[in-house]
């Protein structure tokens, strides 16, 4: 490739990268994240729209669960370092706990 061809190629490549950066989906398709750390859910209260995906990541050394009283949310054991994801379709306020450590509490508000 000569100098002219190289410049044309780089211009096209740069333009494609820029277009990709502008068009790349970010919010609202990016999942919301709740970190489970120091035996607590962070943030403890999260508000989302119906169908949005939420990830609960266990950054502790012990297993946890995400379980609401009606069991509409029920992760089962989330092992240390693992992530559980859910996208609720029904609006409502889900108060949940870790069934292993019931002092750990969180709320998911679905609009």
């Amino acid at each position: 490739m000569n100098d002219r061809g190289r410049r044309r190629f780089l211009t096209k490549a740069g333009g494609a990268l820029l277009a990709g950066a502008v068009c790349a989906p970010t919010w609202p398709d990016s999942p919301h994240r709740v970190t489970i750390e120091k035996m607590a859910f962070s943030p403890p209260v999260l508000e989302i729209s119906r169908g949005q995906r939420v990830e609960w990541h266990n950054a502790d050394l012990v297993p946890h669960t995400v379980t609401d009283t009606a069991r509409q949310l029920d992760s089962g054991p989330i092992e240390p370092g693992a992530t559980w994801a859910h996208a609720p379709e029904e609006a409502g306020e889900y108060s949940y706990v870790c069934t292993f450590h019931p002092t750990m509490k969180g709320v998911l508000k679905v609009r």
Binding site: M39, D60, H101
Partner: peptide, 12 residues
């Protein structure tokens, strides 16, 4: 990192 788990166990 393990300390909060021991605190939770003690409270439990």
């Amino acid at each position: 990192k393990v300390r909060p788990a021991f605190v939770a166990h003690l409270e439990h």
